[in-house]
Write a protein that binds this DNA or RNA. Structure first.
Length: 260
DNA sequence: CCGGATGTTCACCT
DNA sequence: GAGGTGAACATCCG
């Protein structure tokens, strides 16, 4: 999905639906509804209610209704949010530039204003009623040192795999994780539980500074490593040819010189 | 034509 | 039990 920076932009446009009453729901794709939810159940839980709050945890957008039901919206890799015809992100980095109506997986229509649509070509996202937030770790934005220490403790898994694990820390995806580890000067394959206190501080600082900076620049793909994500890509810091590996199931690029 | 791409989940191994 | 791998979802792009 979009990583937490992109979902944060979705949140900003979604808050404009607060106070608006839902008049109808379209959910033609059964597969997109998660946790045993079907279109009738979604309709019963939402139609006639008013949007009371919109917030984000990790990569999940949470729409709270005045019935106290909560809709959890996930965007997979290619999910777009469109509200009142406004798409905060027109084209995702790895998604199609165009938008087709048949890719609208869930649509909420309101008594006033245009609809909220989740448009997802690849159907990797989903919508859930009352998602279990206990399955998510603390949000990566503003993550403190003690929370990071807790998240990494007690596992020999590669630090990158742990940063990607949404139940440990919520919000980081593949691009952000590579960028953060590059900035922290840490090898993504290092066992998470084996970091020294000094390294933990470096990592926490990289998380704390990278997220607002890339957010201000326009998203997860605006890191300095992004332009070098190809064969023969070189480290922007010291010029070494970047190493490409699979860690945590994802393509990982890192500098063999300064990431140790 | 083939392989891979900001993600999650699950079955199946080791 | 902890981790890792591959498949599935479906489309676009180089």
């Amino acid at each position: 999905m979009p990583e937490l920076l992109e979902v944060e932009r979705y949140r900003e446009v979604a808050v404009t639906t607060i106070g608006r009453r839902i008049t109808s729901v379209h959910a033609p794709d059964r597969w997109f509804l998660k946790g045993g939810l079907d279109a009738d159940g979604l309709r019963a839980a939402t139609v006639g209610t008013t949007v009371a709050a919109v917030r984000r945890h990790g990569k999940v957008l949470l729409v709270t209704l005045d019935s106290e039901a909560v809709l959890g919206l996930r965007f997979g890799m290619t999910g777009r949010l469109v509200v009142d015809g406004r798409a905060p992100i027109e084209a995702l980095e790895y998604g199609p530039a165009i938008e087709r109506p048949e890719w609208d997986r869930v649509t909420l229509e309101f008594a006033d204003g245009g609809p909220l649509r989740l448009n997802d070509p690849r159907r990797l996202g989903g919508v859930e009623l009352d998602p279990d937030l206990r399955r998510l770790g603390p949000d990566a934005w503003g993550l403190g040192l003690s929370a990071l220490r807790r998240a990494l403790a007690g596992t020999a898994s590669p630090v990158k795999a742990v940063l990607l694990d949404q139940s440990r820390i919520a919000g980081l995806g593949n691009l952000l994780t590579d960028e953060i580890l590059w900035r922290a000067g840490l090898d993504p394959a290092r066992p998470a539980g084996g970091l020294t206190e000094v390294e933990l501080r470096r990592l926490q600082r990289a998380i704390r500074t990278t997220l607002p900076q890339l957010y201000a620049q326009g998203g997860s793909h605006t890191g300095v490593l992004q332009a070098e994500r190809h064969d023969d890509g070189r480290c922007p810091r010291d010029g070494a040819v970047l190493v490409r590996r699979t860690i945590g199931g994802r393509t990982t690029r890192s500098c063999p010189v300064h990431q140790r």
